[in-house]
Structure formats: structure tokens, C-alpha cells
Design a protein around this nucleic acid. Structure first.
Length: 424
RNA sequence: GGAGAGGUGGCUGAGUGGCUGAAAGCAACGGUUUGCUAAACCGUCAUACUGGACCAAAUCCGGUAUCGGGGGUUCGAAUCCCCCCCUCUCCGCCA
């Protein structure tokens, strides 16, 4: 959410930012409601002041044994007007904030301007896509042949978009989670947390999933809880409504499953593990001082890249343009890995700086150098998303005999296993 | 799920419907004293919104609200009433 002062004082900047995003928002309505709110508020406060003054006087006079009936009647008469003004203030504020919650963040000046993903900029590429002496298979075939994943049985109990990891396939998934957590905690200095997999409306609003993304999330009405679409939500909200007292930056990493309804997406491009309703992810979250947040973003991307380098998966880093930026982000890099069986780059990480956009919504503050409460900057990125990483490992590691060679870094987590082979 | 107890500022902890935005202590910050540390003494020390001074920021002068959250009673609520949330204890259920 924006500071309302941005609308009052930097309205043209905000309009330009919305144009760059290709987003239509009625900023004038917000300005109008804000003015209405302040008008009613100012008048109400003046009346309340009068009421407070007279009430104190009544207290004094009564103690002195004097009659106060006339004054009491006068104050009582003010009550109706005050109540009406309070209601007006609340209405205007609620309407203003409802609109304000739907205004996306302002892209950072370094973000490339463009209408959609076609204007994204490839920042760097790592590793060489392997050349094959045979037509590389899709991970779906590999999974079936090696019995790593059971799609059909999952579909019977949950429908399309879910899967069962089986046998060594399940162990590989677990190994990857542990490998990533270990690397981030031991080498990159992140604190491991294991948060709830459901969050309430306030938390979802705090990080910006609500109100706009309500349709994309699984919701449990009986308890007013949403299944988390990303660990970003429960981890960022660890400090909701707090003034953080420990020194910044704070770096946290968490494994959670991620649940996404993403209705309507199915077909050739999303077969297998590419787009699923539930997938595992190790997330990185940072709470930092505003001055350092863009340096911290670069470091965050490197931390995620380390995983892919260790696993020897070719990837590229893409700077998202203004039109492709997600709602809460001021700047974002995607990391995409090469999947030869798909002949495509797959997004496995989105690393974003939200500046104070989430912190303002969620009420996450720290004490600045002057000792005054100020909003922190929040960042997060996948470090990295499973399922698609799994796809890339299988498709990149596949051999002509149908086996899959595993990268050395993951082998210790699989009891030294070097390759996945068909079993009887 | 049932019964009871509780939720006050960064922390601990007072608070009979008006003199309480809130005692006291601790912590923090500024200063005096001091060879350094420590101690002592003096002072400052909640947040948000809002009106004004100012081009603006910082700042200053006012106002309003906030004692878990939301309603209510009253001229006036931390204090009385109702609903909800959370914590603790006991019981029930349960991986």
C-alpha cells in the first residue's frame, strides 16, 4: 500500500507508474475520498474538543456542588452531529483504503519499461544447455519409466494438477528441500523457520495477495484461513504489527508447500510437473533498512543462483519489465532454468524488492538512526521452487539408456546415489 | 468443545467513571560530575491521524484517537455492560 501522501504530493509520478505498468486505477476517486475524510474528520475533532472541554468543566462544577444540567444537555446535543461525522469519516476512509489496497507498487527507476514479458531483459546466463545425441525426453516420460511420480492415482483423489512422489522420487524431493535449506542456512546466513501452511485474511492482505488474488487461493471458510500460495506470506508476516527490535538485516529461509488454484490453466504447456496446484518451495525473506534494499536484492538473487550452480543446472536471470511486474514488487528478477525436454526456460524463482509496500500494509517497522519508528523494506525470492527444478534435473541429467545422472552436490542427501535407474 | 483466570507504554507493574496518555521501577537517549569503567545526580523518553507555521523535509505550536479488537451506557470510560480474539490453568477430545 502506498502512503496516502504519495497521492497528495506525487500524484503525477504515481500516474506515470501506473501507465508504465499498464494498469488502470482511479486515483482521482482516492484523492476525492481522502479529501472527504479529512473534511469530516476535522469538523468532528473540533466538536470532540469542545465536548472534552465542557465535560471536564462539568466534573469540576459537580465537585463544587453546582448544577450542570444545562451543560450536560448541550453536550448531549452535540453527540448526534459527532456520530454523523464519525460515520462519514469511517465511510470515506474505508472506501479510500479499499481502493488504495488495489493500487500496485511503483516500479523502481531501474526497471525496464515495457508492456509485457516480451520486454523483459536477460541480465545474465549461466551454464551451457547440454547437446544431446538423442531426442531428450520430457520429464513426464522419465518419471513414468523410473516410477518417480504417480500422476494418475493423485488425480483420482484430488483431480488434475496434483501428484504423488513415489519411492526414490519422493526421496529426491525431500533431499532437494534439505539441500537448499542447508545451503542457505550454512553458507548464506539465513535463519530457518517452519511456519504455518495457512494464513488469515490480515496476513494475506499484508503481503499483497489480497484483495486482488483471492480467486487464485484455496480458502477454508469455516476457519477464515487461506492455504499459503508461498512461504512469503507466513514468513513476512512473522513481524506483522511489530516494531522489530533486533538489528537489521534479518534473513529467513523456510520450506513450505505452496497451494495455487490458478483456474483455467491446463494443456500441453503445463503437463506433468510444470504447473501444479501444490508444489514445494524453499523461500528466502529479508527485512532490511531502506538504504540497503537494492544491494540486498542483488545478494538475494545470487543466493538463489548458488543453488542452481551447485546443482549444475543452466539458467538465466531476467529483469522483469514494468508491465510484467507483480502487484507488490518495485523490482523483480526471475530466474529461469533450462529444461531440454520442454525445449523451454522454466521460472523457478522470483526475487523481488517490495520496498516499504508490504511493510506498510503489514505494519512492519524498525527504529531508524533517529530512533523513530519507520517501515522496513521487505524482499523475498524463491531459493528455489521445486517441481520445476525437479523437471530440469531429470531432463538435463537423462542418459540414452533411460537413466538419470544426479549432480554430485545432491548425492550425499541420497545416501551417495549417483543415478536414477529403472527398477524391475 | 466446557469451566475459570488474565491481556495496561520497549519491559516489569499501579490504576475507587472526571485531577490518568496513563504512578513507580527498569531499559534507552542527552547532560553534569568523573583519570577510564562503574556509580550518583538532572533532564528527555508511546503511536497514529489531523489543523496551523514552512516552498518542502526536519522541526515547532495545537487537536483527536488509542490501555487486546469491535460495539454500547454516560456530559465524561483503562475503569461499567455486550460480542470477538489471544494467553494461562483444569476438564473433554485427539495425531
Amino acid at each position: 500500500m502506498h502512503d496516502i501522501r504519495v497521492l497528495r504530493e506525487r500524484l503525477e509520478d504515481l500516474r506515470a507508474a501506473m501507465r508504465a505498468r499498464g494498469v488502470e486505477v482511479d486515483l482521482d476517486a482516492i484523492i476525492r475520498l481522502d479529501a472527504e475524510r479529512r473534511r469530516a474528520l476535522t469538523e468532528a475533532e473540533a466538536l470532540k474538543n469542545e465536548r472534552n472541554v465542557v465535560s471536564k468543566e462539568i466534573g469540576r462544577l459537580r465537585k463544587a456542588g453546582q448544577d450542570t444540567a444545562e451543560r450536560q444537555a448541550a453536550v448531549r446535543a452535540m453527540g448526534e452531529r459527532i456520530a454523523a461525522l464519525d460515520a462519514e469519516t469511517q465511510r470515506a476512509e474505508a472506501e479510500r483504503d479499499a481502493l488504495l489496497l488495489r493500487v500496485p507498487n511503483i516500479p523502481h527507476s531501474s526497471v525496464p519499461v515495457g508492456p509485457d514479458a516480451s520486454a523483459n531483459v536477460i541480465v545474465r546466463t549461466w551454464g551451457e544447455p547440454r547437446s544431446f545425441s538423442f531426442p531428450p525426453k520430457s520429464h513426464v516420460e522419465i518419471c513414468e519409466r523410473l516410477k518417480l511420480v504417480d500422476f494418475a492415482r493423485a488425480a483420482r483423489m484430488t483431480g488434475a494438477g496434483f501428484h504423488i512422489f513415489t519411492g526414490v522420487g519422493a526421496r529426491l524431493e525431500r533431499a532437494l528441500i534439505q539441500f537448499m535449506l542447508d545451503l542457505h542456512t550454512q553458507r548464506h546466513g539465513y535463519r530457518e523457520v517452519s511456519p504455518p501452511f495457512v494464513c488469515n485474511t490480515a496476513a494475506m492482505t499484508g503481503t499483497g495477495q489480497l484483495p486482488k488474488m483471492a480467486e487464485d487461493m484455496y480458502f477454508i471458510p469455516a476457519d477464515d484461513l487461506y492455504l499459503v500460495p508461498t512461504a512469503e506470506v507466513p514468513v513476512t508476516n512473522i513481524f506483522m504489527q511489530e516494531i522489530i527490535s533486533e538489528p537489521l538485516p534479518i534473513k529467513m529461509t523456510a520450506y513450505t508447500p505452496c497451494f495455487r488454484r490458478e483456474a483455467g490453466a491446463a494443456g500441453r504447456e503445463t503437463r506433468g510437473l510444470i504447473r501444479v496446484h501444490q508444489f514445494d518451495k524453499v523461500e528466502l525473506v529479508k527485512f532490511v533498512e531502506p538504504e540497503t534494499s537494492y544491494d540486498e536484492l542483488e545478494a538475494l538473487v545470487r543466493d538463489a543462483e548458488d543453488i542452481l550452480q551447485a546443482l549444475e543446472v543452466p539458467y538465466r536471470v531476467v529483469a522483469l519489465c514494468t508491465g510484467d511486474l507483480s502487484f507488490s514488487a518495485a523490482k523483480c528478477y526471475d530466474i529461469e532454468i533450462w529444461a531440454p525436454g520442454q525445449n523451454a526456460w522454466l521460472e523457478v524463482s522470483s526475487c523481488s524488492n517490495f520496498e516499504d509496500f508490504q511493510a506498510r500494509r503489514a505494519g512492519i517497522r524498525y527504529r531508524n538512526a533517529q530512533g523513530k519508528p519507520a517501515f522496513v523494506h521487505t524482499l523475498n525470492g524463491s531459493g528455489v521452487a521445486l517441481a520445476r527444478l525437479y523437471v530440469a534435473l531429470l531432463e538435463n541429467g537423462q542418459q540414452s539408456d533411460g537413466s538419470v545422472t544426479l549432480p554430485p552436490a545432491i548425492r550425499p542427501y541420497l545416501g551417495g546415489l549417483e543415478r536414477l535407474e529403472p527398477s524391475a
